[in-house]
Design a protein around this nucleic acid. Structure first.
Length: 420
DNA sequence: TCTGGGGTCCTAGGACCC
DNA sequence: TCTGGGGTCCTAGGACCC
């Protein structure tokens, strides 16, 4: 009977994930690196090839430790502009099959092909074609998971790696999920994983048998029930094409630094400038300024202040952030050295030309007498921005005084930036 | 010799208002 | 004199993701 067939929705969500992305690009660009254990980075491993991962080398690991695990490990400096270019090319291929592409990072995206199957055939065929094209036209391995929901598709792509395709048909979902470790669930990290393991919960099937109430008392009012419903295979999230960032931040590891006012203000000025020039470039501004200080034992503290109006000027943000750092340091007077400083602006709003008038009275209360009037400074900063647009980001700016040379290149930072 | 950088979301407590 | 509940905003910290 026509109207009564209770067929389940088809598997039309794809999660596409480039394998060991930076390392794969290096092996693509330099054939002599293919099949060899390599790491992008130096002081710290930013990415490792599968050959290196086999030795236990992972991203974020100190270079020295990686060399111990894998003596033949070859370090390459990184072609960051190529990562951006090739990543964009890959997801342009995806867009040939659907406009509904949610890019979640440089190397990863969700696709909804519900509206495309009548043109290109079933989602599994689309996924196979995308993988073939990305390999043939760009030369990179791409793993794809295909399923009915984002949660399932993401897990499927993890299972598919490296260079694989896993399709979870609706009738197979429970059998697919149940035996998998809870750590594969998006949102279950080391702490939650341990907490669950302590209760004897190790597989997604175990998790699905727990009551939401028990999980809520174990993991919190929000996380518990959310996890329970994912484990029971309910995932209402849609693939969303565009999402703007709600905060901007910049931070810098400074090795070990005596927190003198001079070094703090020079570093904070540099970081505030990174953050606010991005804001100004997108006509945005934010009300809340947060400063982060990490001490040498890796404990970190934050201090924040919410202003009456949204701001995007380097001078206001750096002045407020310096005061916040000073207050954090005053609360930890026994700490003599810091290992990281950070600045964030959140509570973002659109900020058209109005920005010129708004902060006038507001910022002056944060500034010493004798500094240029805010409108003058704002137009000065706009001309700095303009010079950067013409001559590049490094053409004009505040020196990054006191930053150790282990610091990550600016090109790499830009890869991680989310569109504002 | 101690893991880099840019983000999101949640929690808990306090201030303040009605 | 002591008593209640709820909403909103802010701050600080933490887990997690890529």
């Amino acid at each position: 009977m026509f109207g009564y067939s209770s067929r389940m929705p088809a598997a039309t969500i794809l999660h596409a994930d480039l394998d060991a992305f930076y390392a794969s690009v290096e092996q693509l660009l330099d054939p002599s690196l293919r099949g060899k254990p390599i790491a992008v980075g130096g002081g710290v491993v930013l990415a490792a090839s599968y050959e290196a991962k086999r030795f236990g080398v992972t991203g974020g690991m100190p270079g020295r430790q990686a060399r111990v695990l894998c003596p033949d490990l070859r370090f390459v400096p990184g072609n960051f502009f190529e990562y951006q270019r090739l990543g964009d090319e890959v997801f342009e291929v995806c867009r040939d099959f659907t406009p509904v592409v949610e890019r979640i990072s440089i190397d990863e995206a969700f696709l909804d092909v519900t509206g495309s199957v009548h043109l290109f055939g079933p989602a599994s065929d689309i996924a196979a074609t995308i993988r073939r094209r990305v390999q043939a036209e760009i030369g990179l391995p791409l793993s794809i998971g295909v399923a009915r929901t984002k949660h399932l598709a993401k897990i499927a792509s993890q299972v598919a790696k490296p260079d694989g395709l896993v399709v979870v048909e609706p009738e197979d979902e429970i059998a697919f999920l149940s035996p998998l470790p809870v750590r594969l669930i998006w949102g279950v990290g080391p702490v939650t994983g341990e907490r669950l393991a302590a209760e004897g919960i190790t597989t997604i099937g175990d998790l699905a048998e727990e009551s939401p109430g028990r999980l809520a008392s174990l993991l919190g009012q929000a996380a518990g029930p959310k996890l329970a419903s994912l484990a029971r295979n309910h995932d209402p999230r849609r693939v969303e094409v565009e999402r703007r960032a709600g905060s901007v931040s910049a931070q810098s590891a400074v090795g070990r630094m005596r927190a003198t006012p001079e070094l703090v203000s020079a570093t904070i000025l540099h970081l505030a400038d990174r953050v606010t020039s991005r804001l100004r470039g997108r006509q945005r501004a934010g009300r809340t300024i947060t400063a982060r200080v990490r001490f040498t034992d890796l404990r970190s503290v934050t201090r924040s202040a919410t202003l009456a109006a949204a701001v995007s000027t380097t001078s206001i943000v750096s002045t407020v952030a310096c005061e916040l750092v000073a207050s954090a340091l005053a609360d930890h007077a026994h700490e003599r050295e810091v290992s990281l400083l950070g600045v964030a602006v959140s509570g973002l709003e659109m900020s058209p030309v109005l920005q010129l008038e708004l902060p006038l009275g507001l910022e002056d209360q944060h500034l010493r007498p004798g500094t240029p009037r805010s409108a003058d400074r704002w137009s000065l900063e706009r001309s700095v921005d303009a010079a950067r647009e013409r001559f590049g980001r490094d053409a004009v700016g505040y020196a990054s005084v006191g930053l150790s040379d282990r610091r990550v290149p600016d090109d790499f930072r830009q890869l991680a930036e989310r569109p504002l």
